[in-house]
Simulated scan of single mutants.
Amino acid sequence: MSQSFVFRTIELDGQVLRTAVRPGKDHMPPLLVFNGIGANLELVFPFVQALDPEMEVIVFDAPGVGGSSTPSTPFRFPGLAKLAARMLDYLDYAQVNVIGVSWGGALAQQFAHDYPERCKKLILAATAAGMVMVPGRPHVLWKMASPRRYLQPSHVVKIAPDIYGGAFRRDPNLARSHAAKVRSSGKVGYYWQLFAGFGWTSFHWLHKIRQPTLILAGDDDPIIPLVNMRMLAWRIPNSQLHVIDDGHLFLVTRADSVAPIIMGFLAEEKHPAVIRPPASAVIKH
């Protein structure tokens, strides 16, 4: 799978970013992926593989994750959105569609808000509006607060059913496969990502997001309860909600089912209404 990607390591103002691009066709806008907290780009490869092969896809390791460098001081979400825009400039992309997963969904909201001309359509998967949200169960959030699952593969296998829910409850091989793709760069980068969202919320400006937005939620998500995705759909004007019968990582576990929903959404074009006079008003000669 990785052979179909073009990997590049770029430097922007002292920050090294590891990027990967799956080349596509010019007639389809590229898709930029904002990954979850602590997640290196390889973890979304199964999802990318399920998408239309003609669509160009851009993935990258966030600062402090995978092959990207760990900054000396943490970024906040506006700074990360600015860095993503700079990365697109460097890679020569003017406009993209954006998908954000979990922590990356918060970053996707920030990017769509701060750079509306760069974001054509927005997809939010298993995410929330930050501090204004209904939290998951305390024991799940406590496990999420630690980077241990990215440092010890055996720990992922142990806790995956509890924190990811859905298919991970039924198939232990999923956790082992997930753990095998993890590439951690240490604890500091994980804590920096946690700090990016500390005190952050999009709730007060979600109504300003004008891009067509697809919201995807798992009905068995221990980290982001479904009510949070309903809240996003309520606050974002031009949005639609799809509920998936799975847990937090449905983009990977249900990739073959979710990919057609995403491709259909990206292919939609809004057409102006055609107003015709009623038949009784038509003048016959």
Rank of each mutant, 00 (worst) to 15 (best):
T19E: 01
R276Q: 12
Y93S: 04
M133F: 03
P135H: 11
A259W: 07
Y115G: 02
L194N: 10
L88S: 04
S202C: 08
D219G: 01
P74S: 13
I275E: 04
G14D: 03
D171T: 05
S202R: 12
D114G: 08
L151T: 04
G197T: 07
L266A: 04
G197I: 02
V98A: 15
E56N: 07
F77L: 15
H271D: 12
P161D: 04
G36P: 06
K121G: 11
T213Q: 01
R137V: 03
V65W: 00
A273Q: 10
L43W: 08
L88W: 01
F5R: 00
M133N: 09
R148A: 14
D221P: 08
S4P: 00
A175D: 02
G36S: 14
N97V: 09
P277I: 08
N173L: 06
R254V: 01
F203I: 14
L43V: 10
V6S: 11
K284N: 08
G100E: 13
K208I: 06
L232M: 07
M1Q: 08
M55T: 11
D171F: 11
W103V: 07
M28K: 14
L107Q: 13
Y190T: 04
R176D: 03
D219R: 13
P29K: 15
Y115N: 12
G64E: 02
A20E: 03
P277S: 11
L88F: 12
Q3M: 07
Q3C: 05
P225K: 03
T127S: 14
T19N: 05
M55V: 14
V282P: 02
G189M: 11
